[in-house]
Simulated scan of single mutants.
Amino acid sequence: MSRLSISLSSRGLRSQRPAARRLVCPQRYLSTRIEPVDLHYDVVPPADGSKTDKPLVILHGLFGMKRNWHSLSKAFSRDLKRPVYALDLRNHGTSPHVEPMTYEAMASDVLHFCEKHSLTNVSLLGHSMGGKVAMAVALSPSLPQDLLAHLIVADIAPSRGSLSSEFQGYVEAMNKIEASRVSSRKEAQEILAPYEDDAMTRAFLLTNIDAKLNPLKFQVPLHIIGPAIRDIGWFPHEPQDATWNGKTLFIKGSKSNYINKNNLPLAKQFFPNMSIEILEAGHWVHAEKPNEFRKMVTDFVTAS
């Protein structure tokens, strides 16, 4: 299976040790009122047709989308006998384009989605950037008491770091593709190649092209995502201010450094009732080991 999300590349995040002092939050995170948007979604109901009973809700990573999770969603629904929702986060897939693109805003969207669809006892699964969104949902002061039953975080920690310049390079290349008014993916590949050596990563980025348009144009709002990339390494909470005591599973890729000895104690502070499992994989644990990942999530949800 191909890699499904380049949300936070294993080359792209410089992990930090848990801060000994309180870090100053970027100004864009200090908004007083966040207006949630209606997220677009796919749902796979179980055989009994239920759409609200103990659902699994899945959040993709940066430059990802709900359709990346289509095969796993069907398998989860079959295994769990529960509805499975895969969401497009704001500024991704077909969901609305809107600022700000912060973890607080994205968490607000997910909470709004659950309320609108009358979901309770949710098992919330997020990969990379989506994992940080999921953690922000669990730690939100607006979280209803009966909403969240399980939290599953795939290969990311609630730490603060900075993304490398290659991500701005991706946005620069994508802007160049649009400005060049190319009409084929081959031409787009040629423009993107100097910015990214890996053909699979280039192909993944190009899944964001709107196939209905000629010349080619991306369906993600580059003018919003570009400036937001520098803050995607941020996390809006600190453990002295917020914790979630519910059942939490972190799934780490053995070849990835996103969860490491420096930030694992921080995760434990935020989520005291956490466990961790390791898969022989890189950052894309769900794509590289889909069957093992599916079993790990299913066993966790059904056992507790």
Score class of each variant (00 low, 15 high):
residue 178 E to C: 07
residue 194 P to V: 01
residue 142 S to C: 05
residue 184 S to F: 00
residue 164 S to H: 11
residue 164 S to C: 06
residue 217 K to V: 05
residue 151 L to T: 07
residue 175 N to W: 00
residue 165 S to G: 06
residue 150 H to I: 01
residue 146 D to H: 14
residue 183 S to M: 12
residue 142 S to E: 13
residue 146 D to T: 10
residue 145 Q to R: 14
residue 208 N to I: 02
residue 212 K to D: 14
residue 179 A to E: 15
residue 212 K to C: 05
residue 144 P to E: 04
residue 226 G to D: 10
residue 179 A to G: 04
residue 204 F to S: 01
residue 228 A to C: 10
residue 219 Q to T: 00
residue 148 L to R: 10
residue 209 I to A: 04
residue 150 H to T: 04
residue 139 L to M: 13
residue 180 S to M: 03
residue 202 R to A: 09
residue 141 P to A: 05
residue 170 Y to E: 05
residue 175 N to K: 14
residue 216 L to K: 04
residue 169 G to W: 08
residue 222 L to F: 03
residue 209 I to K: 10
residue 148 L to M: 10
residue 142 S to I: 00
residue 219 Q to P: 00
residue 147 L to K: 09
residue 178 E to I: 05
residue 229 I to C: 04
residue 154 A to Q: 07
residue 225 I to S: 04
residue 185 R to D: 11
residue 223 H to A: 14
residue 179 A to C: 06
residue 216 L to R: 04
residue 197 D to H: 06
residue 189 Q to C: 02
residue 206 L to Y: 01
residue 221 P to E: 03
residue 172 E to Y: 03
residue 149 A to T: 08
residue 217 K to H: 15
residue 197 D to L: 08
residue 174 M to V: 01
residue 229 I to N: 04
residue 146 D to P: 02
residue 169 G to C: 11
residue 195 Y to H: 14
residue 211 A to Q: 10
residue 194 P to E: 12
residue 207 T to P: 06
residue 190 E to M: 11
residue 206 L to F: 01
residue 160 R to L: 02
residue 219 Q to W: 00
residue 182 V to P: 13
residue 153 V to H: 10
residue 165 S to R: 15
residue 180 S to T: 08
residue 192 L to Y: 04
residue 140 S to K: 11
residue 206 L to N: 06
residue 156 I to D: 11
residue 175 N to S: 03
residue 143 L to E: 12
residue 206 L to Q: 09
residue 192 L to F: 11
residue 163 L to E: 06
residue 152 I to D: 07
residue 220 V to S: 07
residue 207 T to M: 09
residue 183 S to I: 07
residue 225 I to M: 06
residue 156 I to A: 11
residue 220 V to T: 11
residue 164 S to F: 02
residue 143 L to P: 13
residue 154 A to W: 03
residue 192 L to M: 15
residue 193 A to T: 05
residue 167 F to I: 02
residue 199 A to H: 13
residue 217 K to R: 15
residue 178 E to W: 05
residue 160 R to W: 06
residue 188 A to R: 07
residue 156 I to T: 14
residue 208 N to E: 07
residue 180 S to A: 15
residue 188 A to E: 06
residue 226 G to Q: 10
residue 224 I to F: 09
residue 224 I to A: 10
residue 227 P to R: 08
residue 206 L to H: 03
residue 221 P to Y: 01
residue 230 R to P: 07
residue 221 P to K: 01
residue 200 M to T: 13
residue 154 A to E: 14
residue 222 L to Y: 05
residue 176 K to V: 03
residue 189 Q to T: 02
residue 146 D to L: 06
residue 145 Q to V: 08
residue 158 P to H: 07
residue 186 K to R: 15
residue 198 D to E: 14
residue 189 Q to F: 12
